[in-house]
Design a protein around this nucleic acid. Structure first.
Lengths: 109, 109
DNA sequence: GTAGCATATCAATATAAATTGATGAGTAAA
DNA sequence: TTTACTCATCAATTTATATTGATATGCTAC
């Protein structure tokens, strides 16, 4: 099996999984503009708080967002480093340049 | 809600979802090197054919791979355009540069 | 034609992820 | 020091995805 360069598979998987849900995408879009607390996100997206909390946890686990608490509020923001890592993972595929055609599958070695 | 630039949400979602599975990642890694037919992938990954077929379909639906048939064989290869699209989607987030701190959530407008 | 191979699809099941409503922990204002 | 508020977590349920084994389709060599 081909070695997977510097990326840990599960790390990448987690990251992309976090991107594969409409609500989580909306959250990320909102955080693009600026840091927001949970109650602001909740209001903007019109979803129950426990639902949002679930998805924020997914984003956090995937390292796509960071958060800190201040008084009663918890503020979330993008962790752009991780965005860059995923971007680089994708970019690696293109570095190989054009597609090498298959050897006919029944050819000898 | 913030407009989502030129990307259709479901398109992006599908693409990232396809990336969020270990077997699909392995398939992509193998196709990085060159075009392969299903039976080659099957042998390399040591998975049942119907399982592989299921995941190839997911990759195809997400536009990450293309395929063509030749005789009895079906050859798969990366669709690098779609990789680029996903990369660009991620890159957009970083274009905003540094994180704007939150307004205190209980401040007046 | 018929036999064998490559692949896709299907129905049944198993597994994983998301949703809901309720509860609990921490904070701070009254 | 009680009350209200923000948020995370939990158990129960629903929904979505993946896996399996079997079967169907289409191609080709015989």
């Amino acid at each position: 099996m081909a070695p997977v360069s510097v990326f840990s598979a599960s790390d990448i998987e987690l990251g992309f999984h976090a991107f594969s849900d409409p609500l989580r995408l909306q959250v990320l879009e909102l955080l693009k503009q600026r840091e927001l607390c949970v109650c602001e996100l909740c209001a903007a997206l019109e979803v129950p708080q426990s639902k949002l909390s679930f998805h924020l946890k997914a984003l956090k686990t995937a390292n796509l967002v960071k958060s800190y608490q201040e008084g009663r509020w918890t503020y979330y923001s993008l962790n752009l480093n991780q965005f860059l890592r995923l971007e680089q993972y994708l970019a690696e595929f293109r570095r190989y340049g054009d597609i090498v055609p298959a050897r006919r599958c029944d050819d000898d070695l």
